[in-house]
Amino acid sequence: MVDDEKIVSEDMGVQVEKNENMEMRSFGTVKRWATKRSLWMVHYCTGCGGIELAPLMTSRYDMERFGMHPMVTPRQSDVLLITGYVNIKTLKRIIRTYEQMPDPKYVIAFGSCPINGGPYWDSYATINHLDKYIPIDLYIAGCMPRPQSIVRAFEDLMDMIQDGTADGYMRYKKYYEPYKANQEKIFRKWW
């Protein structure tokens, strides 16, 4: 079970001041525009959320309008979309996938399960707060969120990329030790 007291503060992203972030500023406007208009995502369909992606990709909501495309390997992806509850076993895979993605990379947690455990909050096998283990850039609340809200979330993510607030991957680097400590705490034996 997760020890809730010694977790990393959820709002630690605040500690990275936008203006202090030299790296982000050197990342030019054009590059940021290209990044936001070409978000390729690898979707980790753990729970029931995967079913919501089908209308998103096909003709009803067509996310390719925004230049978004589903990709199958983390090496080619920019966005990791976690669609549902995360149990300890899948968390290992999620972390592995996340670490294999090249910077800049963004994580969207989808539905209430990755936020607070949802209906599985008291399960022995699931985790309740995904952001203790990997940095989340954006949450989509709801159980389930409709495709409209996913589209809305991606629009928000694009705005965040444009103004440089989507900096989860830098948080992960900066607070790598606490994140690792959290991960190891739950896995005890790594893998």
Binding site: E23, F27, V30, K31, A34, T35, R37, S38, T58, S59, D62, E64, R65, F66, G67, R75, D78, Q100, P102, D103, P104
Partner: peptide, 26 residues
């Protein structure tokens, strides 16, 4: 053909630009 709207016609340029501007290559 698939009854979608589809990306803008210059999407491929954006993709290439993004790929070359990735902050990390593995």
């Amino acid at each position: 053909v698939q009854n979608r709207i589809g990306p803008p016609f210059y999407q491929q340029f954006i993709d290439v630009m993004k790929l070359f501007s990735k902050r990390e290559n593995i």
